[in-house]
């Protein structure tokens, strides 16, 4: 299996805080990779380094390499704007644009690229919302505000918005932490359907979620990658004692 995203000696800092310490990880294509670990271990920072979203925070910097299809996204020729259209992101809290309608939220990224053809936009809205399993619920209220729907629907709207720009990979930062179990189940089903087309990396606090959806699982602790492997192996027979302790809840 090909590797979509590869990090080499990746370090990330917030000012003086060394958040990610020399991580080498290979994210396989067309699979779901879960990143687990206790709060503050650098999970979110790691995926934010994969689409150059880490550096938008003040005082944040990155060293090392992140290869997307073999190309270093931190090389000086690489435009971070282009990287972000190739590697989409969904955040912990649903963040649709409140002043835009559901329709406009979905096509927000396409409009940035100058797309004005309404037939094309209509098609993208329907396709993206169907991919995000939201179409049937909102098809009669596309003009309603992006924040008029429930939290779970808003999160799927954010997924649709990210998919509308046709990224190659999708990074999800604890996408279900603000959602109830039913909305969570819908998003997990959706991720399962999406992995044929996309490479997915999901950060989660919920180990059952990682076990349910992920093909591969990475365990991080204090900014380091402790273990990475096939999910079944990581959960049932981890190589490291630390991983086992965390997974079985005997931590600290």
């Amino acid at each position: 299996m090909d590797d979509k995203i590869v990090t080499q000696g990746l370090n990330a800092y917030f000012g003086d805080v060394h958040a990610i310490k020399g991580i080498d990880i290979h994210i396989p294509s067309n699979a779901i990779t879960a990143i687990i670990g206790p709060s503050g271990c650098g999970k979110s920072t790691l995926i934010r380094c994969m689409n150059r979203m880490h550096e938008v925070m003040r005082g944040a910097r990155v060293t090392g390499k992140v290869l997307l299809d073999g190309q270093d996204i931190y090389s000086s020729q690489m435009d971070p704007v282009l990287v972000r259209t190739k590697v989409g992101m969904v955040f912990q809290k649903p963040n649709p644009f409140p002043t835009m309608s559901i329709y406009d939220n979905v096509v927000a990224g396409m409009r940035l690229n100058g797309e004005r053809n309404w037939r094309k936009l209509d098609a993208v809205v329907e396709r993206s919302l169907k991919l995000a399993a939201l179409w049937d619920e909102v098809k009669h209220q596309l003009d309603a505000s992006g924040v008029s729907i429930s939290g779970g629907q808003q999160q799927r709207l954010c997924i649709a918005r990210a998919l509308a720009v046709e990224p190659e990979a999708l990074l999800l930062d604890e996408p279900c932490s603000a959602l109830d179990p039913i909305a969570t189940a819908k998003i997990e089903d959706l991720l399962f359907d999406l992995k044929d087309k996309y490479t997915i990396v999901i950060v989660t606090h919920n180990m059952q979620q990682a076990a349910r959806v992920a093909d591969f699982t990475a365990f991080m602790y204090l900014g380091e990658l402790v273990e990475f492997g096939v999910t079944k192996k990581v959960f049932e027979n981890p190589d490291k004692e630390l991983t086992e302790k965390y997974i079985t809840g005997r931590f600290g």
């Binding site: 282009l82 972000r84 259209t85 955040f91 644009f97 927000a108 940035l112 720009v165």
Partner: peptide
Amino acid sequence: EAALSLGA
């Protein structure tokens, strides 16, 4: 972040 992540 929402806008940036869409390539804005």
